[in-house]
Design a protein around this nucleic acid. Structure first.
Length: 202
DNA sequence: CTATGATCATCC
DNA sequence: GGATGATCATAG
């Protein structure tokens, strides 16, 4: 499916509550009092007819789909609530590949970012707020992302994979991610200001 | 177990 | 409120 087609399919969902859709598509939100944090992403993927799997390649072949939560500030303004997980860091791959050949670049160069409104942790309602296309075509942004990638590379080579921390990086940070319980894997995350740029709410 | 989808918990 | 590290459901 092309990105434009996906946009066309998602357009009608803008302003709609995603919670009832989760039930329609059989997506679990709560189980034994614990939350399936990826439910919103699964709902959108199912809506587009994508089988749920864990392939590391961009889910649609040439572009990447992401759902990100938005929240209202006390001032009443809408902003990005969280950083966005992009992809796992494979130390071997990062060490041997240039930024232009990395998974990070492949995913960032062409993506579709869906913004949903976060109301509360209970997710009683969650309205799809906007759909935004993003390509890594801004020279300044691209240069900074590459710099962050190179920093990660350097740390892995010089200090070791385990020294990577979320404190590093300007637009993209290396941060722990995984099933939890002692997992030490890390992933690239887009910091909030970067996500705002993607959504065009700078 | 670790990849995917991400958000939660806690510290400052 | 923002940042950082930890964690949840599901699939292979």
């Amino acid at each position: 499916m092309e990105r434009n087609e996906a946009i066309g399919r998602l357009q009608p969902l803008i302003g709609k509550d995603l919670v009832p859709l989760a039930a329609d598509y059989g997506v679990t939100i709560w189980k034994d009092g614990k939350k399936n944090k990826g439910w919103a992403g699964h709902v959108v993927e199912r809506h587009l007819g994508l089988p749920i799997n864990s392939s590391r390649a961009p889910n649609f072949g040439s572009w990447e789909l992401k759902v990100v939560p938005l929240k209202y500030l006390t001032s009443g303004k809408l902003t990005v609530k969280e950083t966005m997980a992009i992809t796992m860091i494979d130390p071997v791959e990062v060490k041997h590949k240039e930024f232009e050949d990395s998974h990070l670049f492949t995913k960032l160069r062409k993506m579709l970012v869906i913004a949903r409104v976060f109301e509360s942790q209970e997710d009683v309602h969650s309205v799809l707020h906007a759909i935004s296309e993003f390509d890594l075509d801004n020279p300044d942004i691209r240069r900074q992302v590459k710099a962050d990638y190179d920093l990660v590379r350097k740390v892995i080579c010089v200090e070791g994979f385990s020294e990577l921390s979320g404190k590093m990086g300007v637009l993209v940070q290396p941060r722990t991610k995984g099933p939890g319980h002692g997992s030490t894997s890390r992933a690239f995350y887009a910091r909030a200001p970067f996500v705002k740029k993607m959504l065009g709410i700078v």
